[in-house]
Amino acid sequence: MPKTVGIVVFPGTNCEFDVAEAVEKVGGKYKFIFHSQTDLTDVDSIVIAGGFAHGDYLRPGAIARFSPIIEAVEQFAQSQKAVVGICNGFQVLTEAGLLPGALQKNAGLTFLCQPTVLNVTSTNTPFTSKLKLNSKVKLYINHFSGNYTCDDQTLNELKKNDQIILTYENNPNGSTENIAGICNENRNIIGLMPHPERAISDFLDSRDGLDFFNSLIQ
């Protein structure tokens, strides 16, 4: 029985179809879940897709984190099921307090849309289990506020608990310690700025994203 990925859609989300295609490509099933819904009974994992939820008004993710779906996602995560936030989804998860730290504006005030090389620094999460530890992957970034920021205490905890899962080879946005993706202490909530759903075919010049979704549907 293929696993079903619930893809959360806010007004302004725009990566949901790319995530759906990636999930199907690795043999999984998907279901779109609008932000006003709260029923997550028939999905095995959750992806909060990228875009501009609620127009990113106030701050990216600030309004989205009070949508009804987020409370349901919190409960879902308590049962140790996987919750992944990609790009804007990562911003939503930090605003909701489900992941530590915050994403501030890119150093240099530039919107970044480019391929990046990433180091896989932890495979001990449901979104990176099929990757090779310390390998490099090529994924695309597409963001204005992707500069990961946290206080020193949080940074020490992230390091101590092996919560940093992806780092940039050449830091494009000023992120603390080149951080591109992290997980929570329980390892089932994952946030990353790069878009694995956009690296799923030779035509897109990278298939490295498929391993992430392969991990998720296991």
């Binding site: 106030l58 309004i63 930090t94 915050a102 920021t149 206080d151």
Partner: peptide, 8 residues
């Protein structure tokens, strides 16, 4: 709760 992000 909403108007500011305490990290930033």
């Amino acid at each position: 709760r909403l108007l500011s992000n305490p990290v930033l």
